[in-house]
């Protein structure tokens, strides 16, 4: 193994373990898992309430557990049309309908919370070391590029663990509370959803780590990364709203700079859709990181 790859591997492994046991990461991970469990539980409560009312209106026997009625509803044509209207295109509906309800609930939650989790954990990792000067111990022994990439990869791995733990928590709740959660389909669906969310989160890891390379103050780095995350959402929303012909086609280009552009692509089963999304999100992550690295590489430590 050449020197660069060896250093990259060593920094990645160390960053992963060090971040995993940092107090901040631990608190955020626990909060994330708790949120996954509580939100899944709340979603199941709502589902059960709707099913109870539905059963009572139709004068059916009250369902023993949540999910019994909704599994049937899920497969109905009327529900299919409703989802198609919400998503805006028919082709995605089959992929979504084919997904167990609990997996969709977890996926919705994970896509919403993960960018926040990533920004809270990753945005401080480099800036903390710049502020305390501890980066100097490693950087007198390896190149800045290997160190930066290692930091990024370590965070990427950490987010993967967070998603798996959160997914596991959601699955446990679903297994206990929902009738339709038995079988390998659900656990496989959870794993695939965790993977989709992880790919979606890659861009945010790049954003947070890139910002962290530019600022010595961890608090400021978190604030700027949060603003960046918000800005990406706003730009994405504006793109949706104002995209059109002529000069307004520029919004289409701007959309390519936001991770949201690829969110729905990740839900498709067809590899022809999600592989380009994976490549796009990875490229976005590296682009955000590179912008931060460009500042960092010339910085005096």
């Amino acid at each position: 193994m050449n020197g660069f790859l060896r250093a990259l591997t060593v920094v990645t492994g160390h960053e992963f373990l060090d971040a995993l046991r940092s107090r901040r990461a631990l608190v955020v991970l626990i909060l994330y898992t708790a949120m996954a469990v509580l939100t899944t539980n709340s979603a199941i409560n709502v589902l059960q309430k709707v099913e109870d009312e539905l059963s009572s209106a139709l004068q059916l026997d009250e369902p023993a557990a949540a999910g019994t009625v909704s599994s049937s509803i899920w497969k109905s044509e009327r529900f299919r049309r409703m989802v198609a209207r919400a998503v805006g295109e028919d082709s995605l509906v089959n992929d979504l309908i084919g997904t167990p309800p609990i997996v969709l609930i977890y996926g919705g939650l994970a896509f919403f919370y993960t960018p926040l989790l990533v920004v809270l954990i990753a945005s401080t990792r480099v800036s903390e070391e710049l502020a305390s000067g501890s980066a100097r111990y490693a950087l007198q022994r390896t190149s800045r590029l290997a160190w930066s990439l290692g930091k990024w990869l370590g965070q990427v791995a950490l987010v993967g663990v967070a998603l798996l733990v959160g997914g596991l928590g959601a699955w446990v709740v679903a297994t206990v509370r929902m009738a339709a959660t038995d079988g390998a389909a659900v656990i496989a669906g959870m794993l695939v959803t965790a993977l989709r969310t992880w790919v979606f989160a890659l861009a945010y890891v790049g954003l947070a780590t890139g910002v962290s390379h530019c600022l010595r103050s961890p608090g400021r780095a978190t604030a700027v990364a949060m603003l960046g995350m918000l800005a990406l959402s706003v730009v994405s929303w504006m793109c949706e709203l104002w995209y059109g012909s002529g000069i307004r086609e520029l919004w289409h280009l701007a959309r390519w700079l936001t991770p949201q552009h690829q969110r729905l692509q990740l839900w498709r089963a067809d590899p022809g859709s999600w592989i380009p999304a994976l490549i796009h999100l990875t490229a976005l992550s590296v682009t955000y990181l590179s912008a931060g690295y460009a500042v960092f590489r010339r910085r005096d430590l």
């Binding site: 160390h14 060090d18 501890s134 100097r136 111990y137 490693a138 007198q140 390896t142 290997a146």
Partner: peptide
């Protein structure tokens, strides 16, 4: 630092250890 790694070392002034690092692990990492 990449080519001559470990041949020249520095005790920097005003630098701290990473807060959550463990001495043995940190030294082994370096």
């Amino acid at each position: 630092p990449a080519r001559d790694s470990g041949r020249l070392t520095l005790l920097p002034q005003d630098s701290e250890l990473p807060r959550d690092s463990r001495p043995r692990e940190f030294l082994a990492f370096l």
